[in-house]
């Protein structure tokens, strides 16, 4: 039994479970958390897939995906907090929001 295939299968199952949470998630933050974890698993899946098919060049794509995943999460959070991507966050905006 190929160990890479087993790891890929485990990653698939985990991603399926996380996808269910991102559809079910009662709050916005559950969904963002699930999508972030999904992205992390995608990075691992791409890397493991590369080893499974004997083409480790896939790691470049995995690295790129890791970068995009982080930026995407931060961008989504910033948008939902300030309702804008372009403007810099005003100083102490979170505090005013709470008050």
């Amino acid at each position: 039994m190929n160990m890479f295939a087993a790891a890929c299968a485990a990653l698939f199952v985990a991603m399926l479970l996380i996808l269910i949470r991102s559809f079910m998630g009662p709050t916005l933050y559950d969904r963002v958390l699930a999508v972030n974890a999904f992205g992390t698993l995608t990075v691992l899946l791409i890397g493991t897939m590369g080893f499974l098919t004997g083409r480790p060049d896939f790691l470049d794509i995995a690295l790129l995906y890791a970068l995009i995943n982080f930026i995407g999460t931060i961008a989504a959070l910033k948008f939902f907090r300030y309702r804008s991507l372009g403007k810099a966050a005003p100083k102490g905006a979170a505090r005013q929001e709470d008050a």
């Binding site: 485990a10 990653l11 199952v13 985990a14 991603m15 479970l17 996380i18 269910i20 949470r21 958390l33 699930a34 974890a37 698993l41 691992l44």
Partner: peptide
């Protein structure tokens, strides 16, 4: 660990 983490998220 990944399966356990995904189970926990659910």
């Amino acid at each position: 660990f990944i399966l356990i983490g995904a189970l926990g998220i659910i």
